[in-house]
Design a protein around this nucleic acid. Sequence first.
DNA 1: ACTGTTTTTGCATTCGTATGCAATAGGGTG
DNA 2: CACCCTATTGCATACGAATGCAAAAACAGT
Lengths: 338, 338
Amino acid sequence: MAEAKITSLDVARRAGVSQSAVSRVFSGASASQATVKKVRKAAEELGYRPNILARAMITGKSRIIGLVVAYLDNQFYPIALERLSNALQKEGYHILVFMAPNAEDSVDRVMEELLDYQVDGIVTASVAISNDLTARCAAAGIPVVMFNRGQDGESISSVTSANYRGGYKVAEFLVSAGHKHIAHIAGWEGSSTGRDRHRGFADGLAAHGLAPLAVVEGRYDRELATEATLKLMSRATPPDAIFVGNDHMAFAVLDTLRNRLGLKVPEDVAVIGYDDVPLAAWDAYDLSTVRQPVNRMVDATVETILGKIGDPDRPAQKIEIDGPLILRGTTRNPEGRT
Amino acid sequence: MAEAKITSLDVARRAGVSQSAVSRVFSGASASQATVKKVRKAAEELGYRPNILARAMITGKSRIIGLVVAYLDNQFYPIALERLSNALQKEGYHILVFMAPNAEDSVDRVMEELLDYQVDGIVTASVAISNDLTARCAAAGIPVVMFNRGQDGESISSVTSANYRGGYKVAEFLVSAGHKHIAHIAGWEGSSTGRDRHRGFADGLAAHGLAPLAVVEGRYDRELATEATLKLMSRATPPDAIFVGNDHMAFAVLDTLRNRLGLKVPEDVAVIGYDDVPLAAWDAYDLSTVRQPVNRMVDATVETILGKIGDPDRPAQKIEIDGPLILRGTTRNPEGRT
DNA sequence: ACTGTTTTTGCATTCGTATGCAATAGGGTG
DNA sequence: CACCCTATTGCATACGAATGCAAAAACAGT
């Protein structure tokens, strides 16, 4: 059990050079061919690898990005995480994960811990952060990007899909398909994402002189979505179409409609979700939905955060990426449309 | 824009004590009531928080656990990750995520990077590691726990469910339900998990004088599972029951049977999966499956890794946790059984 | 060959915190 | 009040790598 801690000094000695030479070889600074070769050889033989933490202390760059996320049971997030991690890994960064139990202030507490780790940047997913915290991060010079969530204020970057337009598209489509009684099981009014989809949807209906038959908040939760569905369908005039705030809830809605209520989708009720997670394309659900282009959202997130790390003066950006309506089996197509 | 880096020295000056005093207050060493109060106050006012990386350099403990994982689209893993992260967070540890693109040697490369971060321990999920690497970690004194995967050799800890028994149970159940032509869409013979389930299953059938009708490797992949299903069902004698290596594939199998082939489950074919991910309980699939008790597996993982961090001499443990067969709608019950 | 220029190199210091050691203060006892 | 023991405190150093600076070496030009 050789508790071998091999340091740059060990390598230096073996290669017959100074510690600084070793450092320069491994941090890509200038060094002569000869030393590079000697150092590489010695390092190889000793199994030396630079200590990232020590390096971080000097340079002030830890090459760690903190990710704050509330839950991973909605398939959208693990997939985003996977992509994000891969993309960052390619740039030499890694993700330190922090779960933020939904409570509001827990996010702040968790973010403080995050700062203790001297992360180079923070990505928050499906989570809101206090202005106080935002300011703290800005003061500490740590870029923050909100993923799939926006927030007021100039200073904070965010990457979302075009939620307002998405909601609007859904409304237009459902109207054009001849639906008259259109309900909405909303996400959560406390989230920009949910609000924007809702607003776009309502405006889209209004443009055709309609209004939502009813709006119930589902808070991105299966249970609540199930209840909402039951409630909606037991109305005197039940909806003939339901726009659901995200796919995760839409699956619960479909389960409820088909199995619990024995209804036909889309004949009795049409359903449209939001996200287009992989599961939406599986036969069992075959859900029509608005796609959030995860890859492009992730790319934009990486680009934004790394950009800001590289140039702290870069202003905050609010990026919105448009995604198409994906029509599958839970909607019926309007006349003359494919 | 006050690029404020507040250090323990700043706090010390403001509190009128030495830097060591501040350090002792924050690292829980002994200090008088008076100093603790003064330091706390000064720290509060300045917004001081200890720099974990600097601390890590001295103590050699980073309070970071590396997680190596290959993919997150099988719901089992994000959920395990969520639980794991929460459990570790409670103990003051955090997870640094490394995606290991499936290729064999990429795991090793990724683990090397991991070591650069001076992690206190490593958890690998659904991934195998070379003996060389195992040795390196042992030499560096870094505990490794394999989650949901075992490996030969004394020196490496692992936490799995009782896969052999699980496979065995499935066989017994299917036999008792009167099935005669039982096929297996296996996981991956390169994984202990897949092998054990397969072996248990085969032995279980053998105990009743039966043998699998056919075994096809699905490699935990939807596409392959779909192909396998088509292939199985086009045989002269198609199976009347299929045991699928995990739920993720089983969903593809169900989609194929029901939608593509128009068959009835369980009337025409019964299906049993493995894992019991949340989705298995959703109405659209309602999949009978063997439960892997994620919570207990995660608890065992945390306990093992932290235990080994606390006491490096603790021997490696191979923990197996038994999980029940969960009967839902994709199997028909044998006579006289609930 | 000599001077001027550029590249390489080593020395010494730095990052922010923890900790062994010695000095000091505090507290109790007779 | 002297004495001893213990609890606190500050000083100085260490962790491992990066970097400014100056010395040394390599190179170029005439």
